[in-house]
Simulated assay, not measured.
Amino acid sequence: MTQETVILDALSEPWTADLDAMDVMVISVGHWFPRPAVYYDDGVISGVVSRPEVNRTDIGGGYLGVHRTAMRRTLEYVNTKSTTDKLVVVATISPAHFDARYGPNHRDACSRQKPYEEWEAEVSGAEAEMRKAVLEEAAAAVAQRRRSGLRFEVLDVTRLASMRPDGHPGIYIFRNAFAGRQVPETVANVDCRHWCAPGPVDTFNDILMKMVAAA
């Protein structure tokens, strides 16, 4: 199919088949939702987001509502189907950090060399709502826990990550990129969710390992 397709009432077999073989699960999916998509529920299209060529009205709540639904159903499935003890860690979203003064492909869109000061970074809008959904749905999973050995935790990195725009390699994804040459105004940038330099993401892993050690 030419569009992103999300099936809300069916989970992927590659991981559900191995659910009880897992001692630790890390669920980190926030960045996959803010994109055009068609959503199916019970075999029919339940809505779309940013697909004007599909003769459907955008789904209520946009991708934010779908993100929460997917998170809730995933945790409910783990809660209901797990027959072994495990640590289930749900990560919050990490902001992209592109400088709002420039387009994402501008040479200066991702050029900070120092972390933000406390007053410079604010978690708001969609990122705040997605973080809230993770916190609330994880808390609901704890309240509805079916096994005493099931442990649900949140890897809450949103505020931490919002402070680290210096974690981006930006235009310097390739070795010796633009060495000795002027950087053009329009150039491919890379973002922190996939290409973060050592530092911020290492911190995520340090926190995760503390959770595993405490399990």
Results as ranks from 00 to 15, higher is better:
residue 149 G to D: 11
residue 51 R to W: 06
residue 56 R to K: 06
residue 137 E to P: 00
residue 69 T to S: 05
residue 211 M to V: 01
residue 105 N to Q: 13
residue 185 E to D: 13
residue 28 S to W: 08
residue 62 G to Y: 02
residue 60 G to S: 10
residue 133 A to E: 03
residue 155 L to K: 01
residue 29 V to I: 13
residue 198 P to M: 09
residue 92 T to E: 01
residue 197 A to Y: 06
residue 98 F to D: 10
residue 117 E to L: 15
residue 181 R to L: 13
residue 121 A to Y: 01
residue 165 P to I: 05
residue 146 R to K: 14
residue 12 S to Y: 11
residue 72 R to Y: 04
residue 87 L to H: 02
residue 206 D to A: 10
residue 186 T to M: 11
residue 83 T to K: 14
residue 4 E to Y: 12
residue 112 R to S: 12
residue 184 P to N: 07
residue 202 D to W: 01
residue 16 T to H: 05
residue 26 V to A: 00
residue 135 L to K: 00
residue 76 E to F: 03
residue 189 N to F: 07
residue 94 S to F: 07
residue 112 R to L: 12
residue 47 G to Q: 00
residue 161 A to R: 09
residue 135 L to H: 05
residue 154 V to F: 02
residue 202 D to S: 10
residue 70 A to W: 01
residue 156 D to Q: 03
residue 9 D to C: 11
residue 103 G to C: 03
residue 127 E to W: 14
residue 88 V to H: 09
residue 16 T to K: 13
residue 183 V to I: 15
residue 193 R to W: 10
residue 65 G to S: 09
residue 47 G to R: 03
residue 35 R to I: 06
residue 79 N to F: 09
residue 51 R to N: 11
residue 163 M to N: 04
residue 126 A to H: 09
residue 1 M to V: 13
residue 111 S to G: 14
residue 97 H to K: 02
residue 137 E to F: 00
residue 84 T to Y: 08
residue 45 I to G: 03
residue 176 N to C: 02
residue 176 N to Q: 06
residue 209 M to K: 07
residue 1 M to T: 15
residue 68 R to V: 06
residue 128 A to E: 12
residue 45 I to H: 01
residue 141 A to W: 06
residue 52 P to I: 08
residue 28 S to L: 09
residue 144 Q to F: 03
residue 96 A to I: 00
residue 93 I to C: 12
residue 81 K to D: 05
residue 122 E to D: 13
residue 187 V to E: 04
residue 19 L to P: 04
residue 21 A to D: 15
residue 103 G to H: 05
residue 87 L to Y: 05
residue 132 K to T: 09
residue 88 V to R: 04
residue 207 I to G: 02
residue 111 S to K: 07
residue 8 L to G: 08
residue 198 P to L: 00
residue 150 L to S: 01
residue 135 L to Y: 01
residue 173 I to G: 10
residue 208 L to V: 00
residue 128 A to K: 07
residue 120 E to Y: 14
residue 153 E to G: 07
residue 28 S to H: 06
residue 95 P to F: 00
residue 44 V to Y: 04
residue 184 P to L: 08
residue 148 S to K: 13
residue 80 T to P: 04
residue 88 V to C: 08
residue 40 Y to G: 03
residue 170 G to R: 01
residue 1 M to W: 11
residue 90 V to Q: 03
residue 36 P to T: 15
residue 123 V to Y: 06
residue 157 V to I: 15
residue 135 L to W: 04
